[in-house]
Design a binder for these strands. Sequence first.
DNA 1: GATAAAAACGGACACTTATCCGTTTGCGGG
DNA 2: CCCGCAAACGGATAAGTGTCCGTTTTTATC
Lengths: 186, 186
Amino acid sequence: MADDAEKLRADARANRDRILDAAREALAADPEASLHSIAKAAGVGQGTLYRHFATREALALGVYRKDVDAMVALAPGLLARQPPLQAFRSWCDRFAQYGRRKRAIANIVHAAMTEQDVRETYWPMVDAVRRLMAACEGSGEIAPGADPEDFLQLLGCMMQIAPTPEGEARARRLLALAFRGLGAKE
Amino acid sequence: MADDAEKLRADARANRDRILDAAREALAADPEASLHSIAKAAGVGQGTLYRHFATREALALGVYRKDVDAMVALAPGLLARQPPLQAFRSWCDRFAQYGRRKRAIANIVHAAMTEQDVRETYWPMVDAVRRLMAACEGSGEIAPGADPEDFLQLLGCMMQIAPTPEGEARARRLLALAFRGLGAKE
DNA sequence: GATAAAAACGGACACTTATCCGTTTGCGGG
DNA sequence: CCCGCAAACGGATAAGTGTCCGTTTTTATC
């Protein structure tokens, strides 16, 4: 879990932390802050930033990993407290909405599905979906056989919708459509 | 229809055409050719290129407009030759697949849904979907009430999938899921 | 504590997108 | 014909991303 930042030289580790701190602050102020400016704010050269985080998404992942993990960890709790289908629905709803609000998260999800170096993040998310789907299949609330990865791709799509009122409405409709596609009873 | 390039000064028009020619060739060779290099190949300054086409997508649209129009124009023909649902399915399939193959098209569709200056392209596409959907509703093959724009967003999503064998398979599954979501009979 | 190899640093550099603005040019009215 | 000016040009310029490589620092070893 804490496999990043392992076996790093002391100075490297310190720099990594300073970059993450600077990035957290800079990205909060402006989600598209330049990597250059983040490096400067962290007091390191650009080379150092890029060595630690090869892409903007990798950096965002460093900053938001806790959030992503929390999202993933939410699934079991929901399943314990609600009927499977309801848990599945509300998890998807929250996840997609979170991505719509924090653009960086949406980009992480998208990158996770396509780029190699962020791919490790992918599996916990797929797994959360898999559990939720399996529970729903078990209770007969959705048709069996759907692919969790497929569905995650769909969620990624819904994160790209703007968080305007109309956007939210569209996302709700699309999520409903996706659930009907899974064979969910109304 | 040919409302672009209207009322342009003679030299401007000539430059526009040369840019489009150069872009067509350059983009065919490398879909991510730099706009700079395209300007140079066309023998114009960068300023000229950007004045004619404000963004990469706008340029791509200039180059591929005929293709997009052809895609849109395909719908009525399909409806005339096949049962509505089958026509709808095959249109979506072709459209999404085409986008997967020609990344520029996918970007155009995505830009059309979000950016202002490409938005005009959006409506003919929405309209094609609307006609197909209406025909299916009319024949009772899908449930009424779905929003064409919603569905187009979904198609845009399927264009972002890589055109690998697995990607194609996933796209097929997702399209099937979307149709079930619309209430289509198998 | 000296030392050498590995690890990490950081800024210069190459390339791209996008804008700005002084200069040139086509074209309709005199 | 030519003249003025709006239209168009095009390159300099700013700002961002990502890489490369000579230099510095850490750390393991003696």
